[in-house]
Write a protein that binds this DNA or RNA. Sequence first.
DNA 1: GGGCAT
DNA 2: CGTA
DNA 3: GCCC
Length: 576
Amino acid sequence: MYTRRSSSSSDRSSGPESSSPGQYSPSGYHMIKVYILQAKLDATAVAELYTLIKSCKDVPDGLRLQLCGNPSDADVILSNVHMRKRLERHLDWDIAKQKAIVTPDWLHDSVAQQRPLNCADYAALGELREETDKNCPDCDLPKCICSSESSKESLLDNGTMNLITSPHVSYNYAARYSCQRASPLVCPNQRLANELSVLRIHRDLEGKTVNALSYERAIAVSTGLRLAYPRVITQADLDTEVVHLPYLGEKIRSKVLLCFRGCYHYVNDALTKINEFIRFGRIEECNTIRSSARFLSLKAFASIHGVGSTTARHLYSIGLRTVEDMEQYYDVPIADDGVPLLPNNEPKYTPNGKRIPTNDTIPDLDIKAALVLRHEFAISISRSEVEEMHNLIMAELNDLKPGCASTIVGGYRRGKPESNDVDIVITHADLRGGGEKITGLRKRFVERLYNRGLVSHVARGAGFIAQDSFRWHSLENALTVFRLPAQVDARHLHRRLDLIIAAPEAYWSAVVGWTGSKMFERDLRLWAKTEKGLKFDSSAVTRRHDSKRFFPQSENDVFSLLGLQWIDPTLRNADI
DNA sequence: GGGCAT
DNA sequence: CGTA
DNA sequence: GCCC
């Protein structure tokens, strides 16, 4: 029942040949109104379905669902009733024929994949299968597959456009590595993950990095639970199932218990009590941490780009307590209104409109600059703005070197509705062999963007090259600060932009390496090492015993080289 | 007790 | 040490 | 903090 021609819209657009706008948008799904027909569903099941629907209310770019109180208003009706006679006791047959009537599995699986699945595969009544198919809302043959984008093959075309994540992966929620599991963006266990995240951040800020890693793993497992196990954890689950989940060991498990204390008192009777069900407990220690002044100071310090936990603890130890203290300490110029003075690096023009070339070096994104820019960096970037930035950047690049291909990676590619930064992987057939050609292009491109007033800063400390020991490198990146021109976006905000220039042979490794999430990447590398004797980094897969390098020719190639099943980018959200 | 991504 |  |  999972074998239809559906597509993850991500891949068809992730081909480097498609540097066109609005490449990957998992979204565009209409709000789907769902009615729960309670007959033959017990209170627990109804509560689960209710929670699932609620969790999909505010996801503008994923699956959007709305609980609906009246079957005739619904697009989809969830039902465990399989006989016409029985159904007619609850629902007018003429109305039933105008709806898609599916089993609750449709909801579970659709939430898991964050897209509305084909209703016919889940028809509750064989007799209404055709109607269910016909009335299926927004069935996931995406518009983009039928329209536009001629499928011209390029040497970089990956042939992975129609991959779907195997449902088998969705039921792998107890697997050891997050690269074996499916981790969607939203989940009913979000609250648990948020609580664990407080502990994770706290351990990190206090320098207990391995403890923090354990919490990251526990969070990653929790994020997968929403999938094959898409329900809020109950006491019974805790007793039977949670014991067998990896990375929820004795100490973390006891905290999970704390977090869910009380939630098994829910609904023995009706939907009306479901709001009680939603009220979770909290982890006691988190409350202590949240109200700790030291924690708040360290967290504020470390929120500045370039300041990690070590520097944060140092600043605290010499008496600093607030970011304003930091401004003084780092000598940030403050305007009369008390706001840090934004840098003025607009391009200069002669009276007749010609740009005066600037020969000055590009300002460094150091801690001082990051302090000045921190308010703008905190403003999240919408998907359409990400796409706008990508368009502009690729237009500039095309001027400098025609024929480049690119993919927006990072959180955007994982389907996040809002991003903190923008990551773009870029390649060109001429860059085969890497080395000087890549360095040259990166340098010229960043300088051009700077001279055009599109890039204001570059992070130098981190301008690292590909981490391989080869003489030549096949990957280079530029960590920059970008601004859309005021004519395009009046806010003219400073945005974090990472450009990754890859040789064509390194392209797909780079795309996988930069799509994330962080935990997903660590587990890819750990899996490659411990299970396969391979090394994965964002420039290649390398066999450890003889250093033979493999250059995947598609994103799926990376997965199969590593002996892993395909996981859609939108299901790689193993971090919170 | 060692390893935890590169 | 900080970053992706 | 957890796993081997």
